[in-house]
Write a protein that binds this DNA or RNA. Sequence first.
DNA 1: AATTAATCGAGACGGTACGTCGGGTCTTATG
DNA 2: CATAAGACCCGACGTACCGTCTCGATTAATT
Lengths: 205, 205, 205, 205
Amino acid sequence: MSETHAAIPRSRRGRPRNPGAEDRLFNAALEEYGEHGWAGFTMDAVARRAGVGKSTIYLRWRDKDDLLSDAVAERRPNEEIADTGSLRSDLELLAENFFHFYLDAAGWATLRIVIDAAGSPEPLGRFADAVTDLHREAMKIVGERAVARGDAPATDELDQLWSCLYGSLLIQVLELRTRHRGLDEEQIADRARVLADFVLTRVRA
Amino acid sequence: MSETHAAIPRSRRGRPRNPGAEDRLFNAALEEYGEHGWAGFTMDAVARRAGVGKSTIYLRWRDKDDLLSDAVAERRPNEEIADTGSLRSDLELLAENFFHFYLDAAGWATLRIVIDAAGSPEPLGRFADAVTDLHREAMKIVGERAVARGDAPATDELDQLWSCLYGSLLIQVLELRTRHRGLDEEQIADRARVLADFVLTRVRA
Amino acid sequence: MSETHAAIPRSRRGRPRNPGAEDRLFNAALEEYGEHGWAGFTMDAVARRAGVGKSTIYLRWRDKDDLLSDAVAERRPNEEIADTGSLRSDLELLAENFFHFYLDAAGWATLRIVIDAAGSPEPLGRFADAVTDLHREAMKIVGERAVARGDAPATDELDQLWSCLYGSLLIQVLELRTRHRGLDEEQIADRARVLADFVLTRVRA
Amino acid sequence: MSETHAAIPRSRRGRPRNPGAEDRLFNAALEEYGEHGWAGFTMDAVARRAGVGKSTIYLRWRDKDDLLSDAVAERRPNEEIADTGSLRSDLELLAENFFHFYLDAAGWATLRIVIDAAGSPEPLGRFADAVTDLHREAMKIVGERAVARGDAPATDELDQLWSCLYGSLLIQVLELRTRHRGLDEEQIADRARVLADFVLTRVRA
DNA sequence: AATTAATCGAGACGGTACGTCGGGTCTTATG
DNA sequence: CATAAGACCCGACGTACCGTCTCGATTAATT
């Protein structure tokens, strides 16, 4: 994902790329997007905010979409889900991570991009896949751990559980965004607990 | 919602408005939006597709947002949820309705707008509220019926149940969109059944 | 020449073109060109100076060349050469007219364009022809008058006479430009008299 | 003129300059300018055509103007006008030299630069002077020779004669360029003879 | 031989202007 | 009056080129 542009093979000759620029551009892009949305997200503004010429951007990314996708990909949540010892606490941790991610600028931008990209032709479509696959993967790991641990019966309902957990979480985030509200750590922990509890009812049955 | 423009008082004099135009414009707007997304959704294209001058559009709606909101509002799902006699079948019907709505152009556009609008200042923010409130309302009615019927204990977990049902459904739609796939009636019924079953586990407990 | 854009057939419908814009744009173009030369002659500056949007320019002319050619063509010198009664005074008048034209912004721009265009493929090439033909035509008329009047023998040396008159004049203008100097009416008359006198020596022989 | 860059004092240490580069760059510059004019004359293209890095250019010349001026200066016509024994044949030789120069890429570029530079602030202005002075100088030498020889009366009309000769010649070249035509040796000799003949009429009188 | 100093190619950099396109407004002639 | 047509001003798009800069790699003259 973060290799989108790095994949373009670059010779060792010539002036090397300004290494700080990429990071400043990611920040600028996410901030501009977060503040003004897609409309009102202009390349000139991003360049100005990053203290960079427009050409520098276009040397690295094909267009607006490409820059934003990459910026978002760079900030994706940490996929390492610590093994906390029980399925319940694993799920709670997972939910907390997702809450943190989607309540933040990068995560929110990610969601918008995923929605924008869904159903569109190629370019960002794969990105959408990558993001959801990444998250689904986290879920799968947690689930397999639980099965190995005897914490849960082997289950083919993982997808359903995941989509409920993930979907409910997104709905909550969406509502918070709409009301311009955030959550403090405690509230996040609460909601994560409630959510884990709810989706686990089924598994315990 | 659909009154946005009708609110503008109109005298009886002069040439009457072309009656077909509004409907053709709604279709054109939704199709353009569905095909090209927000970027690439142009007023000129909408006007051309509807066989209408741009001024005709701007006589009825203030701007792009306004037109699109109205188009989407016009196609919102029927809020009447038939009483099928049991909570389970009510939920299944609800889920089926939502599937139909979000797999269709208007529903999908609605979702995109809701996402775009969330966190933005005023204009579409209220629209986002309206849509989710509408859907939450349907859920509440179904829930109250169930309580009245003794089909479920009085519960303050309705919100959680709703967000799981709704969220899981959106996740599924998102994935289908990403893969350019649709569902036939039977598949929708299946998924609705599985979903209702899953979220009901909790209530039955 | 001035029909370059007007040649494009335009329906009568829609908002009519701002009639003053064209003239203001010609002035702005010639002034910008005169002040800054080709490099440093920017469309944005022209648009700003004319109080017009850039797209208004591009609706009427394909590009910078096209605008400038047209601006220059619009200001070409009056081709009517009054019959003053003698070849000598006709030539003096001709020379005076040419001096006025080439010492002015439009004439100078014309010369630059003619030079730029010479040897280039199509677009401005024809313009160059048109300008020189126009001037040669004036010479021919004056010459034929003289022959008819018995003022000069029938001569096939008209081309040579013309190119000497015209060329010498351009050289003088070029030198004046280089030295940032102009001429007052009297000086122009003097130079015109000397020039006519010089080239007429041959004819009288 | 050709010392513009050599004036920059250079130590003897370090890698010596690629000796062929300068010549290849002059050629490349003149060809690019001749083919595309000032607009469309790009440093990158010159560098590419000369097989040289851009920095190599900017190590030797300050900017585009500087490179082009120098390139043109390097190819200026030989100022030595052989003494052929008579004013008439001296003038013919002079005219032939000028024809050769201005029908060639370097001469044509020179003319364009002189025109572009005339009236502009400093940088190329002095170059324009230099070129015309150079040519005027040749005329003066020829004239003085004639006077010394008794071939012509002492004359203050030399400037007029020169501007007619030179101007007429430029007009002819301009027309040939416009029509994409060249001249062979014989045609040049013919035109030179006619031209010398024409301007000499006055002197003989 | 090792060091120093300059040039070379390549190519990224911050800017600026290009010509295009779309938004939302305005102005006409035609219903 | 509403309409279609389309010109209007504005501002962002993505491209191209300027003149600068920074690399690693040469290449001599000086230690």
